[in-house]
Design a protein around this nucleic acid. Structure first.
Length: 339
DNA sequence: CTCCAGGGATGAT
DNA sequence: ATCATCCATGGA
């Protein structure tokens, strides 16, 4: 049993794992239990240091068959040094977070999110795992996505033991493709089972080569992703951001849509999806994906009062009460000439 | 561009 | 124990 320690300045493990990028980490003891690619792992954060425990016998058949996984885990998955590299890469500890945050727009909404989300990093996920997970995420809330991820891992993934803990890796495309829609539906996927199965078959057959896609331009990558069953603009942007390190990619889900409308365009009655998309691409800049993640997490965890997330959007328009004092707007509707 | 089916958990009454 | 709500994609 190895206990490597990894320096991790400007990093918040708990917030990063709970910010809606990744859905399989579970609290265990004083840390988190999960897997990075095909490496089951237990993690704790102590100040600016990460401690990791990996399974002693970490070389699995799964890792040998999956180029992506073996690239991620390396040939010495059991080695303390390899574990350090694995964590550094997965948690993107090499991202210049201070510079990234400094590149965000300077407005009250963004400043509050930046201040709240200190240490939140966009992690580098294995592409298949990320794509598959976000296909299952459509029309689901975080709690439900976590259940689906767990069910898929327990039924189709490979088991890893760390001390007295048991965890599971995410199943390969081959493993999912060998399954059936019926079996997948047993993991509470509903109609998503069909899309996951179809995409797994494309990846398994080699018709889709997710690893080679990292060489594509943002536009081309998004086009290819959107051609996959169950992948639209939102899921494509999530995969671009969380698996392909395209830090400009700006996924717009219902939460972000609310934030943009209410915080940046409070006087505008109708904002179309296209208008919001164009605004976010221009306004948030080169690290828009990071900005989006900070806005998203801040709103979900801390900003309930500020943006009234528990109330349906339409019902708020009937609300004749004075605007909440916390709602501060940079008035982008004027700045960006939107009617 | 707009409208709407779809389904399973979760929260409100 | 019911009823409304949450959600992205895909097709009309």
């Amino acid at each position: 049993m190895k206990l490597p320690e990894i320096p991790a300045p400007n990093f918040d493990l708990a917030m990063t794992l709970d910010s809606g990028q990744v859905f399989h980490w579970e609290k265990a003891g004083n840390g988190f239990l999960g897997a990075i690619g095909d490496q089951p792992i237990y993690l704790e954060q102590r100040g600016e240091v990460l401690r990791a425990k990996v399974a002693s016998a970490s070389l699995r058949a799964e890792a040998l068959c999956e180029p992506e996984a073996s690239r991620c885990v390396g040939e010495h998955g059991h080695d303390a040094r390899a574990t350090k590299l694995l964590l550094r890469n997965y948690f993107a500890l090499d991202h210049p977070l201070a510079e990234i945050c400094a590149s965000f727009p300077d407005d009250p909404v963004m400043n509050a999110a930046r201040s709240y989300c200190r240490g939140l990093r966009i992690i580098r996920q294995p592409s298949w795992e990320c794509l598959a997970t976000f296909i299952t995420s459509s029309m689901k809330q975080v709690a439900h996505i976590r259940q689906i991820s767990k069910a898929l891992r327990q039924r189709f993934g490979s088991e890893g033991k760390i001390a007295n803990y048991v965890t599971h890796t995410f199943p390969s495309a081959r493993r999912i493709a060998q399954s059936s829609e019926k079996r997948l539906r047993e993991c509470a996927l509903g109609y998503r089972a069909r899309n996951l199965l179809a995409t797994a078959q494309l990846v398994r057959s080699g018709e889709v080569d997710l690893v080679s896609w990292s060489a594509l331009s943002d536009v081309e990558l998004r086009t290819r992703l959107c051609a996959l069953p169950g992948v639209g603009p939102k899921v494509a942007n999530c995969v671009m951001l969380f698996a392909y390190e395209r830090l400009r990619a700006f996924p717009i889900d219902v939460w972000i849509e609310r934030i943009l409308k209410r915080q940046y365009f409070p006087t505008k009655r109708k904002m179309t999806a296209g208008q919001l998309r164009r605004f976010s691409e221009i306004y948030f800049g080169d690290h828009g994906g990071y900005a989006q993640q900070y806005l998203f997490h801040h709103a979900r965890v801390a900003g309930k009062r500020a943006i009234e997330v528990n109330r349906p959007y339409l019902s708020r328009n009937r609300d004749k009460a004075p605007s909440p004092p916390k709602r501060v707007s940079p008035h982008c509707d004027k700045a960006f000439g939107m009617r």
